[in-house]
Design a protein around this nucleic acid. Structure first.
Length: 193
DNA sequence: GGAACGATTGAT
DNA sequence: TCAATCGTTCCT
């Protein structure tokens, strides 16, 4: 039997591109929100940019736990970011979900984000958390259970995967561990640094 | 106890 | 280009 846990037990730099096309499903207030993952980044403990680089600190503890859990952290004093924990227990690795394409529950996302602009709802790691109502209460949540599911999905025949450096980091910035679907309108805006 | 620094975003 | 804003981690 293929379980979510088994699907996510490999190396994070292989799993990050694999997750493109998968779906994030969120049940909230009798509504169902669905997004299709279009942009990801890999982080692991050999990587100075990763929260797991310093070892099993309180914040990064979930990254060292079993795969298929959510790692949600609070940053810049105001934003949340959502990751999917990968690798075997004991390894500190996770995939940052940087952007999804809104599929279902778009009106609810607009309310949560305070904008009607479709391409500004979920095109960034903190934006999609706001749209989906994700916060630290989801840290450690098993993504095979409601109210937040990660479901396998497919890339379309025309989807091309692009690899690049990661966004917004200063350490180990040479790693080509960012992956996104080429020409997708919901990929995050590239920030200059 | 103190301080530096963000896996970001939105306004200027 | 820059301010907002505070939890995490490390240093003294």
């Amino acid at each position: 039997m293929v379980t979510l846990k088994n699907s996510l037990s490999g190396d994070v730099y292989n799993l990050a591109p694999m997750l493109l096309g998968w779906r994030l499903v969120r049940a909230i207030k009798s509504k169902t929100l669905v997004g299709r993952i279009v942009e990801t980044e890999a982080y692991d403990e050999s990587d100075a940019a990763s929260h797991s680089y310093r070892g099993r600190t309180p914040r990064a503890d979930v990254m060292f736990g079993p795969p298929g859990r959510a790692y949600v952290y609070f940053t810049y004093g105001m934003h949340h970011c959502f990751n999917v924990v990968t690798g075997n227990a004991g390894q500190g690795a996770a995939v940052l979900i940087r952007a999804v394409e809104p599929i279902q529950g778009i009106e609810e996302m607009k309310i949560n984000r305070g904008t009607n602009e479709l391409t500004n709802l979920t095109n960034g790691p903190a934006k999609l958390c706001q749209a989906f109502g994700l916060n630290k209460t989801f840290n450690g949540h098993d993504l095979s259970k409601m109210p937040l599911l990660l479901e396998p999905g497919n890339k379309t025949a025309t989807d091309e995967i692009v690899t690049s450096t990661r966004i917004g980091i200063t350490k180990d910035s040479y790693r080509l561990w960012r992956f996104y679907i080429k020409d997708n309108a919901y990929v995050s805006r590239v920030m200059l640094r």
